[in-house]
Nucleic acid binder design. Sequence first.
RNA 1: AGCGGGGUGGGCUAGCCAGGUCUAUGCCGCAGGGCUCAUAACCCUGAGAUCGGUCGUUCAAAUCGACCCCCCGCUACCA
Length: 501
Amino acid sequence: MKQEKFYITTAIDYVNAYPHLGHLYEKVCADIIARWNRLVGRDVYFLTGTDENAAKNERAAKEAGLEVKEFIDRNAKRFQELCKAFNISNDDFIRTTEERHRKVSQLIFTKMFENGDIYKSSYSGLYCYGCEEYKTEKDLADGKCPEHGTEPEHIEEECYFFRLSKYEKPVLELIERNQFIIPEKRKQEIVARIKAEGLKDLAVSRSRISWGVNVPFDPKHKIYVWVDALVNYVSALGYPDGEKYRKYWPADVHLIGKGINWFHSVIWPAILLSCGIPLPKHVLVHGYITIGGEKLSKSRGTSVDPFKLLEKYEVDAVRYFLARDIPFFEDGDFTEKALVERVNGELVGNIGNFIHRTLTLIWNLYGGQVPEPRNYEKDEECLKLVESIRRLPRVMREKLENYEIDRALKEVADFAIQCNRFLQAKEPWRTRDPDALFICVNSVRTLAIVLQPYLPSSSEKIWKLLNLEGLPEDYGWNSAGELAVKPGHRIGRPEIVFRKI
RNA sequence: AGCGGGGUGGGCUAGCCAGGUCUAUGCCGCAGGGCUCAUAACCCUGAGAUCGGUCGUUCAAAUCGACCCCCCGCUACCA
């Protein structure tokens, strides 16, 4: 049987600043989805990267006193380090300044042109010479550029347009087909907007800037950054004839923040249609993180440096918080207080403590050897927990297939509570009841597997403490529902997995 | 302004689509108790909400409808 493939991408990040918590959030979510899909046996390809061709980089570099390339390299490196530091399992990291990308970007542009979807016309708008970009009404304060305090000039220039209007019908059909955009409310936003405003042709080249990818047949023009950026999803696979492209395209999931939905759900499909490239299956839109109730904003200082967090907290503590506390489809708030409470109360106090008390009980009562159960099949409480072990991967799977990653993790926390209650009720330290501990140690194994996508390194640690062969991921998701730790098995010396912060 | 989402005990939250089993779920916090295998952990009990407001549909509404008040999101280059 052919293994099912699964290609997931994140948005690529602007490199005009260092990564913040929002960037991390998206990567962690993508990582969880990717790891989970691997665990259920799919052949996963996970891509992330950086968007480096924006003209804005030039300005940001100047402010930092660096050459553009130097500036971009420095920041891009930081994003790559972010992935490493937080255990993100991306298979590739594309930078849009790489040759492999630029040539595909140009190829796509050429294809659109050859298909008659690109034409030359003139674009007029309010241009700020300071920013070197066009401004819309709402960008301005009192008719002036908020940054330079000057009034932008009304100018007109030649540029290339993409016949986006031509694709209004097919794009609308695509979106209205169920589940292209997840969740539903993001779909409604887009559908409403297309129906209300229709699709207008889009200016896809800029001539007043010096940083960017040249329009191949007219190098005075640069390719509009968004067109260039979107192409990363195929360029990274080696479009048009790369092996990975043939294997993994179309994407199963483009994971993005809600602010760039339009580009992914409307413009990107239109570009692909123009080039005759198959369309992605889903655009998955997550919410934003707020900091203490405020929007992330570099200028207002409401930004959290993920690397700073690592100085105080462990990777898995942060991952746990992000996955559990931020409702995936909504905005969620970050505060250190909430992080500490969630981790101490739930991850450490509930999940971690259950693991630890189970392991130490086996160690102290049975010398580290899993006891032979007597007749748990006849005990109602035991059967209930066994049933929960079987159920947990099932219910989590339902949630995860719908990308409810926060809710799926809540199931884990609830399961741990149930385990603690069970232990409390059974009091094996007093009754010496081997059945209870036999089931508990299996619950620990279940936890190790179901936590693997969320907390990969802790999961491995639990696995080692159980002294089991290989790694949790070798056994697959469904194995989480089994009682696979056998009587007589020797566990390792108990150690604390999750420490209070 | 238009379109969309939401307002549930001190905080967060489930339930709402398919009305009754909701005398409303869970977590945090708070008060009391238990236990002591465990990372002052875990377990139990309790206080605390007429489910934003008004009106309506119905035998029955947190759940459906209308109107009103408040919050938030989207409206072409911000994860």
